[in-house]
């Protein structure tokens, strides 16, 4: 049973987290539907089942903080407050998209919201996130940089270079490994020397070993708030490993058949962060009507954003030649 008297989170923040996670879930589901209708081309990497991680950080971060995510970044982008039509429109290659169709699903960027890009080459963005953190330190401001990545990233060199640099320069940054147990199609433990791909490496960089249940939204929020405060107070970087599971395959092309049925069933039925959090809200005596109203509101927002995206014009062909350079163009000789 929950301890209602000693609730450190409170109803207001819980409902914000609920609304946030639900939005991430319903937009991802909508993205999947739009793929099936062939309204979204290319690839997509859905974060269905992993919403508690992006959601908790979305609630814990402040305006002005910087986030970096991977190609599995729709959720992390929405979690900073980017518009649903900005995300869906980008996936659909429409002018209302965050980058008007220039980047696509794997590169969602919304600088006004602190979304400093979604990165599709494993490991790179850990080093780049150090750069925004370095800028905060250089400018003596107090923004925090947060960098999300998957378990597979822990085996590439840039991960290790970035952790070392963050530590030696005491940068205000949080590295968040979302360990969904599979490096694309391969179980992560089959290709990693240690049991906990991120946390077991923390000691090598004089960082604390932090493992958290990434599907327990309250625990994620508590952890996020703690490591963000540490960074903001100038006490240096953190690396956390959040255990989670993706409900779908690695990408659009992957039905995820390499995972045992029982394992998938267990995570879907018993460890779904959304389902479990709804039950927890009821445990905390939060009125079900309020919960349902939020559900209806988000459903409505997603439908409206879908309509806006579908009505939005496709980019003009001349856009191919814009914005290579800061002068707006692409000329390379006079």
């Amino acid at each position: 049973m929950v301890d209602k008297l000693n609730d450190d989170i409170g109803e207001e923040k819980r409902l914000r987290l609920w609304e946030m996670m639900l939005k991430l879930r319903l937009v991802e589901k909508k993205a999947y539907d739009l793929f099936l209708q062939n309204l979204i081309k290319g690839t997509s990497h859905l974060a269905l089942g992993q919403e508690a991680i992006a959601g908790a950080f979305g609630v814990a971060l402040k305006q002005g903080d910087y986030t970096f995510c991977t190609y599995r970044g729709h959720a992390h982008t929405l979690a900073r407050g980017s518009s649903i039509e900005g995300v869906l429109g980008e996936l659909m290659g429409r002018q209302c998209g965050l980058m008007k169709g220039k980047g696509g699903s794997m590169h969602l960027t919304d600088v006004d919201k602190g979304v400093m890009g979604s990165y599709a080459i494993i490991g790179a963005h850990l080093t780049i996130a150090n750069g925004t953190a370095l800028a905060s330190k250089y400018n003596k401001t107090n923004e925090v940089s947060v960098c999300f990545f998957g378990d597979g990233t822990t085996n590439i060199g840039a991960f290790h270079e970035a952790l070392n640099m963050a530590k030696i320069w005491n940068l205000p940054i949080v590295f968040v490994c979302e360990n969904n147990l599979y490096m694309e199609y391969t179980p992560i433990h089959e290709v990693t020397a240690v049991e906990h791909p991120a946390a077991d490496r923390a000691g090598a960089y004089d960082l604390d070993k932090i493992i958290v249940d990434g599907n327990d939204a309250d625990e994620m929020l508590r952890t996020a708030e703690k490591v963000i405060s540490k960074a903001r107070e100038g006490k240096g970087p953190s690396l956390i490993e959040a255990k989670t599971y993706r409900h779908s395959g690695h990408s659009r092309a992957d039905p995820g058949k390499y995972r045992p049925d029982e394992e998938v069933k267990d995570w879907m039925e018993n460890k779904d962060p959304i389902k479990n959090y709804r039950a927890k809200l009821l445990d905390f005596n939060i009125n079900e009507k309020i919960i349902s109203e939020i559900e209806e509101k988000i459903k409505d927002q997603v439908e409206k954003a879908t309509e806006i995206s579908m009505a939005s014009p496709i980019p003009e062909i001349k856009e191919i030649y814009t914005d290579v350079w800061a002068n707006g163009g692409s000329e390379w000789h006079n």
Partner: peptide
């Protein structure tokens, strides 16, 4: 900086982005 060319250029890029 350490002998970490990716980290060097990544940090420079991130700082330039701000």
């Amino acid at each position: 900086a350490p002998i970490s060319e990716q980290a060097i250029l990544g940090a420079a890029m991130g700082a330039a982005m701000t």
